[in-house]
């Protein structure tokens, strides 16, 4: 599955400039995708597909959003943006998501 923000990332990489615009208008919607906030992470969600019952709770709660859905409805974790808050792991009813310490 592809990130729903793929087009936004490509556009922002190509067109975004730091130049001041009249009225400070921002012309590229969703251009914050250029900031890879995954570097903030201390704990990383690890997903066990076998335990997942596709309740979509992690997908609903993710504040980033760093979780999107694949064609079968399973969550895909976008580690470029996941800040590692752990809400998904805390709310997962089947404990299919586990937070492990990030090793870099």
């Amino acid at each position: 599955a592809e990130s729903p923000f793929k087009a936004d990332i490509e556009r922002a990489q190509k067109e975004l400039s730091e130049k001041m615009t009249p009225g400070a208008i921002v012309y590229i919607p969703g251009s914050s995708v250029i900031n890879k906030t995954g570097s903030w992470r201390v704990f990383k969600p690890e997903f066990n597909r076998d335990k997942c019952v596709r309740c979509y709770l992690c997908y609903i709660y993710c504040p980033e959003p760093a979780i999107y859905l694949d064609e079968e409805g399973y969550p895909v974790f976008d580690y470029d943006y996941c800040k590692g808050c752990g809400i998904c792991a805390n709310e997962c009813p089947t404990k299919a998501i586990e937070m492990v310490r990030e090793v870099k």
Partner: peptide
Amino acid sequence: VRKPPITTREYWAPGHAACAGCGCATALR
């Protein structure tokens, strides 16, 4: 496959500067 209970369209993109675990970001999304 059950349908997600809400649309998969996104109007709130990642990469914003909200703290990790921000409840307000979830609410606005």
